[in-house]
Design a protein around this nucleic acid. Structure first.
Lengths: 192, 192
DNA sequence: AACTACTTATGATAATTATCAGAGAGTGAT
DNA sequence: ATCACTCTCTGATAATTATCATAAGTAGTT
C-alpha cells in the first residue's frame, strides 16, 4: 500500500479485521459539521480496525496511508469464530483493544486541556517517542493534518512550529524535523 | 451508594468488574498537569469499569456518584474465566466495550472541534437525550464539573448558561433545568 | 445568628485563537 | 514553460477565551 492509499473508507461495510505490519496510517472521519478530523495514527502492530469493528456494521471512520505500509487482513467472521472457540485469544484481544482505545481516549482528553503550543508539542513528541523513537525524523503529516488532529487552525499550527523553530527547540528542513531541545519541548507539552 | 460516594479511586488495584444498575456516576482523573478532568458519565447499564479494566493493573481514573446509585460488582477473575470458557459471552463483551469506548472517543473528538457554546449545548443535550430522556431535569453536575468535562473555564461555562437563559433557550431554577428551545440548542451544538 | 466554605454570577482586562488577506515555494498536469 | 493547485508562511484584525477581582447566594457548622 502506497502513501496516500485508502485502506478503509468511512461508510464501508466491515468485513475484515485489520492490523498494520509496516508503515504509518491515519484514522480520520468527517464530523457532523462536515470537517475532516484525524482521530489517531496507526503504527506497526497496531490494530487499525479497532474502533467500531465489533460494535458496528459500517466503519465510521476512514484510514489512509501516511507512508508506504503493509496491512494484514483477516476475515472478521473467522476472528469472531476464533473468539468464540479460543478463550485465551479472546481475553488477549480484549486487553489489546482496551489498551488501544484507552490511549486514544486519554490522548484526546489531554489535547482538550492543552493550548496551541502544548498540543503541537504533544504531537511532535508522539512522533518522536512513540513512532520513530528518534529525535530526527521526517514529519509524516502536513500542517493541515496536524491542525485536523489537534483541533486548531492551520495558520496557528504553522505559527507554533515557526515559534519553536525560532526558539531553537526544533529544526525544520522541508519535511525533515529534528528536536534540538527536548526538555523544553516537554515543558511546552506539560504546561498548557 | 449515596451521592458523592467514591466507587473507584485512581490508583486502586483493579479487582472487580463493575456495572451500574441505577443512578449516575462520573468518571474522572487527575491529568498530568494536576487538574481534575471528567472523562465521561456512567448511566444505568453502562460498564463503569470500562477503561483500563482489562488493560491495566490499576485504575487510571476515579468514579464517584452524582446521584444515589446502585452498582454491581463481579470478581474480575471470574469474568476472565467466563471470557475464556464462554465464547458467546466474550464476543458480546467485546462488542459492548467497543461501543462504549467508541462513544467516549467520538464525544471527546466532538468537543475538541467545538467552541464554548457548542460544548455547553452538547452537555445539556447529552443529559436531556441520553440520560433523562426529558426536556426538564435536575442538572446533576455543577458548573465547575461541566467546565472540567468540556475543558473550559468555570466562568465561561457560567456565562454560556447565562446567555442561553437570556436567549430563552433554557430556564434555570437552582438545579432544575428545562430546555425551552431545543431546536436552537441543537443549532448551537451543530455550528461550533 | 455568625462563621466558613463553596457555588453562582458579572465585569474588566489580558491572553489566546480564528479569520481574512496576500505572497512565495513546491508539485503535477498539459 | 505555463497554468492550476496545494502547502507553507506572515501580518493585521476580529472573535473567543482565560484570568483576576468582586459580590451575592447557598449550605453546613458551631
Amino acid at each position: 500500500m502506497k502513501t496516500g492509499d485508502l485502506l478503509i473508507k468511512q461508510g464501508d461495510t466491515i468485513k475484515d479485521f485489520i492490523y498494520l505490519k509496516e508503515g504509518l496510517v491515519k484514522l480520520y472521519r468527517k464530523s457532523e459539521q462536515g470537517q475532516t478530523q484525524i482521530i489517531s495514527f496507526g503504527k506497526p502492530y497496531d490494530f487499525v480496525s479497532l474502533l467500531s469493528v465489533f460494535s458496528d456494521e459500517k466503519y465510521n471512520y476512514s484510514v489512509s496511508a501516511l507512508e508506504d505500509s503493509v496491512a494484514c487482513l483477516f476475515d472478521l467472521n473467522e476472528i469472531k469464530a476464533l473468539i468464540k472457540s479460543n478463550g485465551e485469544f479472546a481475553l488477549h484481544l480484549i486487553q489489546t483493544q482496551n489498551r488501544a482505545s484507552d490511549r486514544i481516549i486519554m490522548n484526546s482528553l489531554d489535547l482538550l486541556q492543552k493550548r496551541l503550543y502544548g498540543r503541537v508539542a504533544n504531537v511532535l513528541l508522539y512522533f518522536s517517542d512513540e513512532v520513530y523513537k528518534s529525535d530526527e525524523f521526517e514529519l509524516p503529516i502536513s500542517r493541515k493534518e496536524m491542525a485536523q488532529f489537534i483541533g486548531m487552525s492551520i495558520e496557528n499550527v504553522i505559527r507554533a512550529i515557526s515559534a519553536f523553530r525560532k526558539d531553537k527547540i526544533i529544526q525544520v528542513y522541508g519535511k525533515d524535523l529534528s528536536i534540538l531541545d527536548k526538555k523544553r519541548l516537554k515543558q511546552m507539552n506539560d504546561f498548557s
